[in-house]
């Protein structure tokens, strides 16, 4: 076989290989939605993270703005420290409210950011002060029963 024909085939092969890798990165994976290079980290302490896992999305107004990178238990404050990687295009005020939410009734858990009105923006490495823990089903049911019981008590008195 001629060397030029062979070069052509190998060129096509490598191009197709790189194309397949790009398809995997952009179309199949989440390379298209965020890239680690242009992001900053925020932290938040949560009393209870429920079923939140690393790589869960961080959403604001329903739009994915980042990912959960790491979850650690803090032995000083006895709560969970969640590290998030946020896309640098999105800045949030200092008094942003972070809560752990569930998509749908039994869906995956994610962190929702609700922006506040502060002038000062959060910088990389900052801690979000206002957090809201995950809804745990058992606690909700427990609270509901407790409320019902106290309502009934009130009725008697």
């Amino acid at each position: 076989m001629q060397r030029t024909t062979m070069d052509l085939w190998v060129g096509l092969f490598v191009a197709a290989g790189i194309g397949a890798l790009l398809v995997l990165a952009l179309k199949v994976g989440n390379m298209g939605t965020y890239s680690a290079a242009q992001s900053y980290t925020l932290m938040g302490n949560f009393e209870n993270i429920g079923g939140l896992k690393p790589r869960a999305p961080v959403k604001s107004a329903g739009v994915v703005v980042g990912r959960v990178v790491d979850i650690q238990f803090s032995p000083e404050t006895f709560d969970a420290v969640v590290t998030m990687s946020i896309d640098s295009r999105y800045q949030f005020p200092k008094d942003t409210f972070a809560s752990i939410l569930t998509s749908g009734l039994l869906g995956e858990q994610y962190i929702g950011l609700a922006a506040g009105g502060d002038e000062v923006m959060l910088k990389s490495g900052d801690k979000i002060m206002k957090t809201n823990s995950a809804m745990v089903l058992e606690e909700m049911i427990g609270r509901f029963l407790f409320n019902k019981a106290s309502e009934n008590d009130g009725g008697k008195n």
Partner: peptide, 19 residues
């Protein structure tokens, strides 16, 4: 089909590790 896939497949963890 595509959006669930893109939500679940992480570039760094899944694709890079596969490569």
């Amino acid at each position: 089909f595509w959006s669930q896939m893109q939500n679940a497949v992480d570039f760094r963890y899944d694709i890079v590790n596969g490569v």
